[in-house]
Amino acid sequence: MTIKACLFLLAASVPAAAYAADAPYYGPMKKIDGWWGLGMKVGYDVRLQKDGSWRVDAVMRRGDALSVAMYRAAEMARAGGHDYVQFLGGSASRGGGTEAATVIARPSDVSAPPSECAGRRRDACYTAAAAEVMRILSGPDGSQPGVAIVDHVDRFGRSVFLSGFGIGKVDPGSARVAAAPLAPPAPTPQPPMHMPVSARLPDAQDRFKQALKEQQSVRGRDPRQGWTISD
């Protein structure tokens, strides 16, 4: 199956009532009624992996199977009292009149990125706020799990829907970062002991010249400069 990482979907603006009438089935996997179903199943199925992660499979005849699988993973995380859900990978495919998707996920109490990924695509491996994923995939009226809401309308008047891997992602830059320890102050340089005494202490003759210079008159008539030759 091929990876599906669709962040923005463009479509014509559609009334919310139309979405409600065509909302995909959201619930545990069940067989399709009618002879034309040929025993086909739709819905989601969750299996616990050996490493503790969830494998969420979804099959839809209409709607976005990946959105249904992601919503179910976030819903389970929230039901377990966790604020975050880590998406570790996933895939999606379409054929035979249905769309299928698989999402590998696990709940989390921290916003840190996952330490490992199950898939090859990095955009399918991240930590998301579970409540935000559910909000984005709850439909126009908030009661249609697996249906993307309209994010905004573009300059051509088309509705832009937000869905697929990347929704609800927690910005790593917003996480608290421990302050780096302060570096110790640099020691005051001391003259090496092997330096000659004449280099470390002013010469007595130089001190005498400096004192004599300070006693000389200042050329000028500005009273602030002290006494002058003409005084």
Rank of each mutant, 00 (worst) to 15 (best):
M193F: 13
R106T: 15
R62P: 01
R106D: 10
Y44G: 05
L182G: 06
S111N: 15
L48R: 14
R135C: 00
R221Q: 08
P113G: 05
G146R: 02
P202D: 03
Q86F: 11
G173T: 12
T2K: 04
A17F: 05
Y44N: 04
M193A: 15
A18K: 11
R176P: 15
A118H: 08
G220T: 09
Y44S: 05
A23K: 11
R78I: 15
G95C: 08
Y26C: 01
Q216C: 06
P184V: 09
A178T: 10
G81Y: 14
A175N: 13
M134H: 01
D83T: 14
R47H: 13
C117L: 00
W36K: 11
R61F: 03
E116H: 11
I136K: 06
V59A: 13
P196F: 11
K209E: 08
A12S: 09
D33G: 14
A131W: 01
Q215P: 01
V68Q: 05
G97M: 01
P184E: 04
R61A: 07
P192Q: 07
S143Y: 02
R221P: 03
D83F: 06
W35C: 01
A74S: 10
A128R: 07
Q216I: 03
F156M: 04
C117Q: 02
A130C: 11
L162K: 13
A183L: 06
P223W: 00
R176I: 14
A180K: 12
M193P: 12
G97A: 00
K209M: 08
S174M: 10
L88T: 06
G173H: 10
E116A: 14
A58G: 08
P192M: 07
M195C: 06
R158N: 13
D203R: 04
S108Q: 14
P223N: 02
I3Y: 10
E99C: 06
I229M: 12
Q216D: 09
A21K: 14
Q210N: 03
P192Y: 05
P107F: 11
L162V: 07
G81M: 14
A11S: 11
A124G: 12
L162T: 06
K31D: 09
A105R: 05
G90R: 09
F161P: 05
L201N: 12
Q86Y: 09
D51A: 11
G119N: 05
R94I: 13
Q216K: 07
D154S: 03
Q216G: 12
L212M: 04
A204K: 02
A69D: 07
R221K: 07
G90W: 05
P24F: 04
P114W: 04
A21N: 04
A112H: 14
M60K: 06
R106S: 15
M1Y: 07
S159E: 13
